[in-house]
Amino acid sequence: MSGATQSTAVSTGRITRTLIYLVLLLFALFYLLPFFVMVVNSLKPLDEITGGNMMSLPQTWTIQPWLQAWSSAQIGVEPTGLRPYFLNSLLMVVPAVAISTGLGAINGYVLTKWRFRGDNIIFGLLLFSCFIPFQIVLIPMATILGKLGIAGSIPGLVLVHVVYGVGFTTLYYRNYYAAFPTELVRAAMIDGAGFFRIFWRILLPVSGPITVVSVIWQFTNVWNDFLFGASFGGQSQPMTVALNNLVSSSTGVKEYNVHFAGAILAALPTLLVYIVAGRYFVRGLMAGSVKG
């Protein structure tokens, strides 16, 4: 490699470069291996797993474990498969993400472009609420959901996820809108646009990148949540809880291939979102929240 084309500050010799690639590839292996093993073994019959090598490809390929995990595996006491729980998760995620993102956007707009005395305190309180250990709210939440009559229901879970997600979405939109020139808002005011019109016509049309971040973040968090699902899921348990029930059920033979298929099914939506939009997520996240 010629020094002239090397634009990073550091130039390195050939041996170090080989070492660097080696280390990077080893880590890639480390990250890929568990998932690889899951996929491969979810496509094997059970006896091939217990008797064979987890690293080897299936000798007999089968999608039976997937079908079983999806529609007939024993979850708790019912042989329903994961399908109804997948649906629960979906019904919970969509409104929770939409509501918390919408609230976050309008909050961020107010907190940056319509500042008032004490707005920073409100933002500080919202921000801190993102980081609390949820154990601190479990007991009263159980009581309140019961009183509201939405304990163990999807609306209850939606409420919980909106409440504890709105801090993050507000944070994202606030940081994004903070970089948006206030002069534009002033120009629109002089042009005669009011509070909502400015939001709708001026800010929202340029909020694409941060909306991607907010939606992915909320989607991943809500979909992957276990604690709230396990505590307040009741009759409407989400996918993660069902998966845990499937995997840790102690009755009968452990059907590892079915467990793996189930785990991948549970991971699929977030993985898909990540594959489709992950690039924008990381970019937006870096620009928005964790810049020093």
């Binding site: 002069e183 534009l184 002033r186 629109a188 002089i190």
Partner: peptide, 14 residues
């Protein structure tokens, strides 16, 4: 009934 020209021009980007 005023109009203002801003330093950054404040043109709506969209």
């Amino acid at each position: 009934n005023i109009a203002m020209v801003f330093q950054s021009y404040a043109l709506y980007p969209n």
